[in-house]
Design a protein around this nucleic acid. Structure first.
Lengths: 180, 180
DNA sequence: GTCTATATTTGGATAGAC
DNA sequence: GTCTATCCAAATATAGAC
């Protein structure tokens, strides 16, 4: 798995070949088939591993109950996760690999992650319809722009706190309007 | 070119092959080389064509001078442009094709498009540093989520107006803070 | 479990005739 | 300009020996 990630990071996710993975671990290509039934299976294992890593980070967030503080922490965690490994980001969130679809088993992990995000939002009082969708658009947009247009830099990273302020202020407006 | 786009839409951008393009126009594969020097050259021509189409739409926007109205119109135009052809979106904004980099000539068109966006923002009084970056993050995020997670639907499309309200309210806040 | 050997497919690209 | 024929390389996958 480590070798597969290395190859994906070096040659692009679509450029991953079992030959390269095999060579990286000092094996001949056919030997890889003792561990994975197909190239697809390698992608699926990577997808699942990415989901588990993400779930681990979600669970290690220590949230305070203060909306702005928690939004910032969550958004930073998510965007750091995306930016630190663009190949993983592409696999998990872009789905741009030729014919790859995660297995039901792996996909369940992704659903679990989104569910935990929804629960966290409810906990800080953000329940408006569309709020979760707006937040995922905003955070993936920041991550995407950072990765595509300023790799290695911080041009969009440094907007994360401000984006969460903007988001929260907007949600507060909506809530007040509703209550009145 | 039309055939190339059709193939890209059908088989994915990375799945485009000159063989398929040739067959689609009733030619044999080598004949394509009378028109394009390489597969790369085809991608580059597609990129340039996408940019020109986008520039055309930018110039056809009739802006009113009212910030919210114009932001909404611009964002809708951009996101519609992205969503209506995910292969084009991937080529122009994701840059996920194996070793493809647009030629300097083609890239200049993309720069021109971003420049016209910046000018439009200035015209409605949005000049804060980072405002343009925040706007591109927000709009590409909406487009990206729509394409990735609800293709053919409108789950994120219908958030566009609200997103622009949020963005504008935020920018107004920042301006006032600066003035005081 | 790992290897050698190989089948098979695919696809970019060129040579040279017409 | 288009064709036939072909080269070449890469890459997934399998068979079967050790």
């Amino acid at each position: 798995m480590d070798a597969a990630w290395e190859v994906a990071r070096a040659d692009g996710l679509a450029g991953l070949t079992l030959r390269d993975v095999a060579r990286k671990v000092g094996m001949r290509p056919p030997s890889v088939y003792s561990y994975f039934a197909s190239k697809h299976a390698v992608y699926d294992a990577m997808y699942a591993q990415g989901c588990r890593e993400f779930l681990g980070r979600v669970s290690r967030l220590d949230l305070t109950g203060d909306a702005l503080t928690d939004l910032r922490a969550g958004a930073r965690m998510f965007i750091d996760f995306c930016v630190e490994d663009p190949a993983r980001y592409q696999l998990m969130f872009q789905r741009t690999v030729p014919g790859f679809e995660p297995s039901a088993e792996s996909y369940a992990l992704a659903v679990e992650a989104l569910e935990s995000l929804r629960a966290a939002l409810v906990k800080i009082g953000i329940t408006a319809p569309g709020a979760l969708d707006m937040l995922t658009a905003l955070t993936t947009g920041l991550a995407d722009q950072q990765i595509s247009n300023d790799p290695g830099g911080d041009r969009w990273l440094k907007l994360v706190d401000e984006a969460m302020e903007m988001f929260l202020a907007h949600m507060n407006t909506r809530t007040r309007r509703k209550v009145r």
